[in-house]
Design a protein around this nucleic acid. Structure first.
Lengths: 295, 295
DNA sequence: TCACCATATAGACACCTTCTATAACGAGTA
DNA sequence: TACTCGTTATAGAAGGTGTCTATATGGTGA
């Protein structure tokens, strides 16, 4: 198979109809082009150009070759254009998987600012449980996953995002819970509103109680963090939510943090990617945003 | 613009999913492929492959590039196949222009044997007067012209074919003309059958008579050499034809050569092509046939 | 006939491709 | 755990090839 580089010289020579002009376009000298064309002709065993005093002209065979090479050249040009787009984020796509509430409360601001900065990068967001996110990641369905740490999987690369702290909150109705320390047992005498049972935060809080010999049975079970917050606000009981995501409500007095007599360990947000699969430029730019402090 | 040769390496690497396998296909070593891919990645500023312990896998950007390069590669493969066909005459086309009767009486046997030898080479035959043939040639409408020499045109390359000799012939009815020398004046007392007035042979014969102070006026004027021969055979008079093309008739006694007392110069068949435009392989093979003696 | 614009050729040199040898790494297996 | 096998990566050397400069050659048009 012929050296492809010769076809580039051939294309430009045919296109410009002149060895000298092709040489200019290629930033090389005319003898060099002459040599390349000769080499190509010798290799193919066909004369491709008729040399005239005004330049060169394709022979029959040359014209046949050109009709194919022109297509090939165009595809390569397109490819390079496309890649250049990908490099400057004037095109591209990022698929992100966010578990649980992280999508809305953590990811959204980043997505918005990223989208403003690179409007041509398409963002594709899926959500699901942590195991689902990991599965999607391994299947190549998403580029980045946003989950709670800790997450142990040696196929994954885990970058740490901000620290978050879960806590119990309640609305003005049960405001007394925010006054002094409240034992877990005491808490159980209030109606508890929890996230659906397969979530990791639900599992955590259930274990917290059982480790103290208590059985946690929620009054109400909800499928969305937003609802969890809303229900707590209007007095349905006590919710278990991420403190950072209810910062506003805690400030404006629509929610109060319950001061329990146990320590709820803080956790970090994990930005997970596949260890052996390099990120696309767009995706790695996004990850950089997530990692950069101060955003 | 990136060195096209790198795309060949890229294509095979992506296709085989392995640097080592690509190296085998390219008949080079694995480090060389590794180096090329690295170079391509550096040049493009993008990582194209994820290296695994089992080989390599395209990244997102690599996959984008591949979708284009694959097309380009296919076109180049097709081009090389096509050229290879042209080289072995398993495809191709020759356009030939033959003037006057040369088409049928001279060219046909060559065409037939060439077609048997290279059945996939398409042959395109047009006929016309010598100036028309020359015009077609210069316009690139035909590759080869077959005319009578002499032909003077410095854009043309003229190869000489067989020698032909024109002569007057007549049928059994005027058989007496073949007995002794016949003067041109005497010949004029017989009905003369000539080719249409714009033909070169007609011009020649008219001049032959006028140089001897005689005015040649044909009894019958015909547009085809075949008819010229037929009319002479059945006794309409005397025709002026190429001796080589009535060899059979002269042998079997259906025609007789008139023995005039003037010398009709012999001429050669000219195979004309454009000086500055190389012949296609098929065309030059055909010309070689025409030139080779003994066919 | 001359100047100008093409392409072709020759010879030299530098760079780049390729090589060999070896390292590093991961996966599978005993 | 250690060993092997397969993969890719790296380093350094050498040869080849692409490119250059200088010049020849040849056709075209003034």
């Amino acid at each position: 198979m012929v050296n492809f580089e010769l076809y580039k010289v051939f294309y430009l020579t045919a296109k410009t109809g002149s060895l000298s002009k092709a040489a200019k376009e290629l930033y090389i000298t005319q003898p060099s082009v002459s040599h390349s064309i000769k080499l190509l002709e010798d290799t193919l065993g066909l004369q491709l150009f008729a040399r005239t005093s005004k330049g060169v002209e394709l022979t029959k065979e040359g014209a046949v070759l050109f009709s194919y090479i022109e297509q090939a050249y165009n595809f390569i040009s397109l490819a390079e254009e496309k890649l250049s787009e990908l490099r400057n984020f004037s095109s591209g796509e990022i698929k992100i998987g966010g578990s649980d509430s992280l999508c809305k409360h953590y990811l959204l601001p980043f997505l918005e600012s990223f989208h403003v900065q690179y409007p041509h990068v398409q963002i594709n967001l899926v959500h699901g449980t942590t195991p689902e996110i990991v599965k999607h990641l391994k299947e190549g369905k998403i580029d980045i996953g946003i989950v709670r740490t800790p997450i142990l999987d040696d196929q994954l690369q885990v970058r740490e995002g901000i620290t978050i702290q879960d806590c119990f909150v309640t609305g003005p109705k049960y405001r007394e819970l925010s006054m002094g320390k409240v034992s877990l047992a005491k808490l159980l005498t209030y109606p508890i509103i929890l996230f659906s049972s397969n979530s990791s935060s639900r599992k955590f809080v259930t274990r917290l109680f059982s480790e103290n010999g208590l059985l946690l049975e929620p009054e109400i079970e909800l499928g969305s963090v937003d609802l969890l917050i809303e229900f707590a606000k209007i007095g349905f009981g006590v919710s278990f939510v991420t403190k950072e995501f209810v910062a506003k409500e805690l400030t404006d007095g629509s929610l109060f943090e319950v001061n329990i007599d146990a320590t709820i360990p803080s956790t970090k947000i994990g930005i997970i990617t596949l260890k052996n699969m390099p990120l696309s430029t767009a995706a790695s730019a996004f990850v950089a945003e997530l990692e950069s402090p101060g955003d």
